[in-house]
Every structure is written in structure tokens, then in C-alpha cells.
Amino acid sequence: MPQLNTSPWPMVILSMVVALFYIIQLKMLNFSFYIIPTSKSTKMQKHSTTWELKWTKIYLPHSTFQ
């Protein structure tokens, strides 16, 4: 039974990895990345409402003893 010659395998594997790298790079050139839009004002807008001016607590009604 003849033996399998394994001497060219490292060169085949290396050339395959290089070819895949170039193919991926060419695919990435055609891909368009979306730019995240930045907001014009970085300050938070403060809404004026009446319930923000004071602290309120809500209590449960007192239990009645019978």
C-alpha cells in the first residue's frame, strides 16, 4: 500500500488561509457600515411638571380595630 505524501500540506493550508483572508477582506470592502447619528444637544431636557416640585408620600389607610 503506497504511503501518503504529507510534505505539501503545510503549504496548501497556508495558501488556503491567505486566500480566505483576502476573500474576507474583499467582502468587507463592499460592506457599508452605518454611522450612528449624534444628537445635536447633549443636555437633558427638563420638563416642568407640578409633581416634580414636591415630595409626596402615599400611605395605606389605617387599619381599624374592631
Results as ranks from 00 to 15, higher is better:
2 P>C: 05
3 Q>D: 10
3 Q>S: 11
3 Q>M: 05
4 L>S: 08
4 L>C: 07
5 N>C: 03
5 N>D: 15
5 N>V: 11
5 N>K: 07
6 T>A: 10
7 S>T: 15
7 S>I: 13
7 S>Y: 08
7 S>V: 11
8 P>R: 14
8 P>D: 07
9 W>V: 11
9 W>C: 08
9 W>N: 05
9 W>H: 07
9 W>I: 15
10 P>A: 02
10 P>T: 00
10 P>D: 01
11 M>P: 00
11 M>N: 09
12 V>M: 13
12 V>R: 15
12 V>Q: 13
13 I>R: 02
13 I>G: 01
13 I>Q: 08
14 L>C: 10
14 L>M: 14
14 L>N: 12
14 L>I: 04
15 S>T: 15
16 M>C: 12
17 V>D: 02
17 V>I: 09
17 V>E: 04
17 V>F: 08
17 V>W: 01
18 V>T: 14
19 A>C: 09
20 L>I: 11
21 F>M: 08
21 F>S: 12
21 F>A: 12
22 Y>T: 09
22 Y>V: 13
23 I>E: 07
23 I>F: 14
24 I>M: 09
24 I>K: 12
24 I>Q: 09
24 I>C: 05
25 Q>Y: 06
25 Q>V: 11
26 L>D: 11
26 L>I: 09
28 M>N: 14
28 M>H: 10
28 M>G: 05
29 L>R: 11
29 L>H: 01
29 L>W: 02
29 L>Y: 03
30 N>H: 02
31 F>V: 04
31 F>M: 08
32 S>R: 15
32 S>Y: 06
33 F>D: 06
33 F>P: 00
33 F>R: 08
33 F>W: 08
34 Y>T: 10
34 Y>N: 13
34 Y>V: 13
34 Y>S: 13
35 I>Y: 04
36 I>G: 05
37 P>R: 06
37 P>S: 00
37 P>M: 01
38 T>C: 01
39 S>K: 12
41 S>D: 15
41 S>R: 08
43 K>D: 09
44 M>F: 07
44 M>P: 01
45 Q>F: 01
45 Q>S: 02
46 K>G: 00
46 K>H: 07
46 K>Y: 03
47 H>T: 07
47 H>Y: 10
49 T>V: 14
50 T>R: 05
50 T>V: 09
